[in-house]
Write a protein that binds this DNA or RNA. Structure first.
Length: 595
RNA sequence: GGAGGCGUGGUGUAGCUGGUUUAACACACCUGCCUGUCACGCAGGAGAUCGCGGGUUCGAAUCCCGUCGCUUCCGCCA
């Protein structure tokens, strides 16, 4: 269609173009037919410009009659002259609003059915309709703008990493099923009956192999697949900014990530991020905020009240402490809760293991009230001081095992803020959370497992604990959090075969299993692996936050629904018996429908 | 796997404590009129048996059960 000779985008016309002959192509946004005068709003991805048709005589009259046939979303070609609008007729709401186009030629390149929803309408159609007609949904200026933003952000990432000596390397999409982690998407092999590929959950192992290969600095805008249930911020396929560096320690990786994000925010949003990002140890994050991804825009913090609680006669507190637990409180500054609200919250925390919720509140006069107020006795001022509580504040108190108390108060922190629409401080509050436990106890399977992944290096000084007290070992890993959303994680990897085998042993992977599952990696490490570390950042999540979209689906061109379906193509869908046979597959679907 | 929300002309909503509607409103659509609009305006028109199935009832968009779809959260997501 190069012969169309489009000369300009609609949205870029300005007074400077006045007098020029232009050729525009785009979609009809609206036609305002005044009978003796007709306005056409022509739209392309750059925006809108107004084209004015006069009835006149001869050719002009033909053009006018043609224009009267135009309908929304017709694709048209317009040639004409850019002209200043008459005095007082400019539209300040439109970037091109000072000019208009006087046409000399009009051609319908393609008509359109009446669209199933108004592309430029005020109302946002139901999301399933948007997804079914995604190409029309994406035609909406907000959505096109988001796609453009995504392009610019990815370009900024590439430019930055290139400038720092990173090479972009592609890794396989058809790979081996990984033993731990999320459920894999499997692809059956036709050539090898009964064997399967898995789509990668991340390029983790390959990037480590690239380090062994001497690539030194690798990155990839990598598609990752995880067959788990979806959320507003979780899709079965998503994109990571994946990178790995050889001969580095934590500081190198964190600095590169900070500078990369600084570059992206500067180029895409014109925002200057404050570097470096603050860091919090995992233990401190859990103690102060009850979560490993605290939203720092919310200043509320958790306080340990165990010593004070020990002096009360309150059974629940004393029992919790006697069993080795803790008593902690969360102050809600200036927030009053009704009994009913507290009951509702108590019910909600039951699923987190919280058996009850105590509370205190301070009156204007300074007197304390609440479910445990009568147990404070002479210690009331000490409680108040510890919590820094003042009139109008409510404090929620949880007692029990440390893990449960953290989880409960961490949950309440965001839950109440949401409910009460507590004001969050504005801004981009990045945070590094470092020093996660290397291992976590899997209650169900009765064994230790990797908290991050099994290739994460333990802290050197914790190595002796690996066999004696695995839960105490901290890892050389780091999570990046933005406004309470986990953006990604990374670590310094194990590069010595002996240590890798010790970690495998700690998580109950026998040498035989290790060889079976990761033999290729262990073997590679036997041939001179450099110390290395890296990071993987969730691109979709980052973009969602940057553009202020409520869901990751809004920054992905063709996303899946909560049931992992594509409403546009109808995927997933059945395949023919012939296809199954070719793949040596037979279906075993239990007949659940009893009619 | 569990819990909640939503489903009404093409679109977005109202109606939903059962019977005063012939299911309403806005936008879109169709016809006509209109020379400066830009969410153009005016007049007229067409269009929904209320996701689907079953039940309760004299009577169901409205109540109940099931089911499907979308969605939010928990579990899950090394």
């Amino acid at each position: 269609m190069a012969g169309l000779l489009r000369t300009h985008y609609c949205g870029e016309l300005r007074p400077a173009h006045a007098g020029q002959e232009v050729a525009l192509a785009g979609w009809v946004r609206t036609v305002r037919d005044h009978g003796g005068l007709l306005f056409l709003d022509l739209r392309d991805r750059s925006g809108v410009v107004q084209v004015v048709f006069h009835p006149g005589r001869g050719e002009e009259a033909d053009l006018f009659r043609q224009a009267q046939e135009l309908r929304a979303e017709y694709v048209v070609l317009v040639r004409g002259k850019v002209s200043m609008r008459p005095p007082g007729r400019a539209n300040p709401a439109l970037p091109s609003g000072e000019v208009e186009v006087i046409p000399s030629y009009l051609e319908v390149l393609a008509p359109s059915l009446v669209p199933p929803f108004e592309v430029d309408g005020r109302a946002e159609p139901d999301e399933s309709l948007r997804l079914r007609y995604r190409y029309l949904d994406l035609r909406r200026p907000v959505m096109l703008e988001r796609l453009g933003f995504r392009h610019r952000a990815v370009k900024a990432v590439r430019d930055f990493l290139d400038s720092r000596g990173f090479w972009e390397v592609e890794t396989p999409a058809l790979t081996r099923s990984t033993p731990e982690g999320a459920r894999d998407y499997l692809v059956p092999s036709r050539v090898q009956p009964g064997h399967f590929y898995a789509l990668p959950q991340s390029p983790q192992l390959f990037k480590q192999l690239l380090m062994v290969a001497g690539v030194d600095r690798y990155f990839q805008i990598a598609r990752c697949f995880r067959d788990e249930d979806l959320r507003a911020d979780r899709q079965p396929e998503f994109t990571q900014i994946d990178l790995e560096m050889a001969f580095v320690d934590e500081e190198d990786v964190l600095t590169v990530m900070e500078e990369m994000l600084g570059h992206v925010f500067r180029t895409c949003l014109g925002v200057e991020l404050e570097l470096p990002f603050p860091r919090l140890s995992w233990d401190e994050a859990m103690d102060r905020f009850g979560t490993d991804k605290p939203d720092l825009r919310l200043p509320w913090e958790i306080r340990d009240l165990s010593d004070l609680a020990a002096r009360t006669e309150f059974r629940i507190f004393r029992d919790a402490l006697a069993e080795g637990g803790t008593v902690r409180g969360l102050r809600l500054p200036g927030i009053a809760l009704t009994r009913r609200e507290i009951d509702a919250l108590t019910a909600e925390i039951a699923s987190l293991g919280g058996r009850g919720l105590a509370w205190l509140a301070w009156e204007d006069g300074g007197q304390v009230r609440g479910s445990v107020a009568r147990f404070l006795g002479g210690d009331a001022p000490a409680w108040r001081e510890r919590l820094a509580a003042g009139p109008g504040d409510t404090v929620l108190i949880s007692a029990g095992p440390l893990q449960v108390v953290r989880r409960v108060l961490g949950f309440l922190r965001t839950r109440v803020a949401e409910e009460k629409e507590a004001v969050r401080e504005p801004g981009w509050r990045f945070l590094w959370v470092v020093g996660f436990p290397l291992l976590e106890w899997n209650e169900e399977e009765g064994r230790w497992q990797a908290e991050h992944h099994p290739f994460t290096s333990p802290l050197e000084e914790h190595l002796p604990l690996l066999e004696t007290d695995p839960g105490k070992v901290r890892a050389r890993c780091y999570d990046l959090v933005l406004n309470g959303e986990e953006l990604g994680s990374g670590s310094i990897r194990i590069h010595r075969r002996d240590l890798q085998e010790r970690v495998f042993r700690a998580i109950g992977i026998t040498p035989e299993e290790a060889r079976e599952r990761f033999g290729f990696l262990l073997e590679a490490f036997a041939y001179g692996a450099p110390p290395h570390g890296g990071f993987a950042l969730g691109l979709d999540r980052l973009l969602m936050l940057m553009v202020g979209a409520p869901s990751m689906r809004d920054v992905i061109a063709f996303p899946k629904t909560a049931r992992a379906a594509c409403l546009l193509t109808g995927a997933p869908a059945p395949v023919s018996p012939a296809q199954l046979a070719e793949l040596h597959l037979r279906l075993a679907i239990p007949s659940t429908r009893g009619h």
